[in-house]
Design a protein around this nucleic acid. Structure first.
Lengths: 198, 198
DNA sequence: TTAATTTATCTAACAGTGTTAGGCAAATAT
DNA sequence: ATATTTGCCTAACACTGTTAGATAAATTAA
């Protein structure tokens, strides 16, 4: 029954090819230009085949969204593990978040509905909680004994808002003065860390 | 030649009706569901008529975007004029910005490309600069002699990032704990104002 | 008043979209 | 050798934005 395995492997390949093709179109032409027929062209199948791997276009994009969260989590984990002090960890993790948003611009757009109407948010993306939880933990460590659920939460959203906000602004508009991004970002992160340490 | 005027008035009415219909669809069913045919149905014309008023769907949505900026500017102007001290003005203006984002959620989405691929950003929206300039001015007033172009810019983007970021997060996800928004928002605004005053 | 012209509006179509139903042929299982 | 499953395709449906071209009404010119 080794042929079963071989077949499964082929199916896995095709599934991967579909996702790869979709991502490539998203990167090359923007999500707006993504269509099932274009994907089918690239993988050299007819469109209905895609529906054997994904329920519909949205489910396909949801998978890419999850991929994005996994990649982001990996990057942030590595950033965290480069340091021992929670302070440095936080700094580097948010800087990594920032960099991810631009090196993986299209995935970031998908993950946060920037210029694309992203997937439904019934809690069907557990992957999204991984980066969040990592940040939470480090904030808790930085706070030490003063850490309460509520306070961590507040700091987390403050961090996230300012970083995600600045990213969003940059992604939909062009014209933030050069050097301004770095100033605002580092200032804000430093400021919040300072506030946490009291 | 009064009939010319009457006709012009009718044309203006139709144009307004088109925009109204589009906005209503956006509010009722989401921008994703907006179509030229649906607009045509509502205004009781056939689709091609719309193209006598707007070059295409995007131009129509751009007009709604501009409308959004005008409404936001009006709200913020009123907020500013309720106070005399720059501090109170800033506070109220950003709170007004926040409220606008939720009372006019669909327009805000359009203006900032949240869950909708918004209009091109070649500087074809001078209306967008009005709220920005108002904030700039008040920040400058608050800074007094210490005000420099660069410093104002930095504070402006810091404000905007955190407010817009928190709004974005709320609009694409549900599940920010209750009361958290107000805490983060007021904390951040207060913190930045504090930083500005040195 | 009649003829010419402009204006308002429509129908029909093109090329594209997501998605589904049904068929055919090859591979597999009985 | 027959039955069944699998893989993949063609064709279609109901949409989408947009345009070309016809038609009838309103306006202007003779």
């Amino acid at each position: 029954m080794a042929s079963k395995d071989r077949k499964q492997r082929l199916k896995d390949d095709t599934r991967r090819n579909i996702l790869d093709a979709a991502l490539r179109i998203g990167k090359d032409e923007g999500w707006q230009a993504l269509s099932m027929r274009k994907i089918a062209d690239i993988i050299e199948y007819t469109p209905p085949v895609i529906y054997e791997y994904f329920a519909n276009k949205e489910a396909l994009m949801l998978q890419l969204t999850k991929l994005g969260y996994c990649m982001l989590a990996k990057d942030m984990r590595e950033a965290r593990d480069k340091h021992t002090s929670p302070e440095k960890q936080l700094e580097d993790m948010w800087l990594t978040y920032w960099n991810f948003a631009f090196t993986q611009k299209e995935l970031y757009q998908l993950m946060f509905g920037i210029e694309v109407n992203c997937c439904v948010w019934d809690n069907s993306i557990p992957e999204a909680e991984v980066p969040a939880n990592m940040i939470w933990e480090v904030i808790g460590n930085l706070m030490g004994d003063a850490a309460t659920e509520d306070l961590i939460c507040k700091r987390y959203y403050t961090f996230w808002s300012v970083v995600h906000g600045l990213i969003s602004i940059n992604l939909v508009r062009q014209g933030v003065p050069d050097g301004m991004n770095e100033q605002v970002l580092k200032d804000a992160i430093g400021g919040i860390i300072h506030a946490i340490k009291g």
